[in-house]
Amino acid sequence: MEALLASAIGLLTAVGIYLMLRLRTFPVILGLTFLSYAVNVFIFVSGRLAVNAAPIVGTIDTPADPLPQALVLTAIVISFGMTAVIMIMAIGGHLQAGHDRIDLDEDQA
């Protein structure tokens, strides 16, 4: 099972970085979303995998590690905030410049 999750994390990272290397804003933002998935799952699995061990006191004696879960919970919400900010920036860039390329033009660089 660990191998499945590890490969999924690796795949999500690779897809995220590939998309972030594209030249338009929308795929870059999608890439960032993929990367967030990968990072969130990575942090989550740092608590190691456990089945039927939700950290609810009274239901179980050896629970899954609750701390990474708490970290990832807030991280998920913050990722949304970040994605939303970048999205409005991308929209603004497109509306103001008339294109959605991410690189500066040669004369601006």
Binding site: E2, A3, L5, A6, S7, I9, G10, L11, L12, T13, A14, V15, G16, I17, Y18, L21, A38, F42, V45, S46, R48, L49
Partner: peptide, 22 residues
């Protein structure tokens, strides 16, 4: 080239996750 770079990163992170979980 981009796919290569992304692949390297993915292998690295995936390997790291695997090493950590085991």
């Amino acid at each position: 080239r981009d796919a290569g770079i992304a692949g390297i990163a993915g292998l690295g992170i995936g390997g790291l996750a695997y090493a950590m979980m085991t």
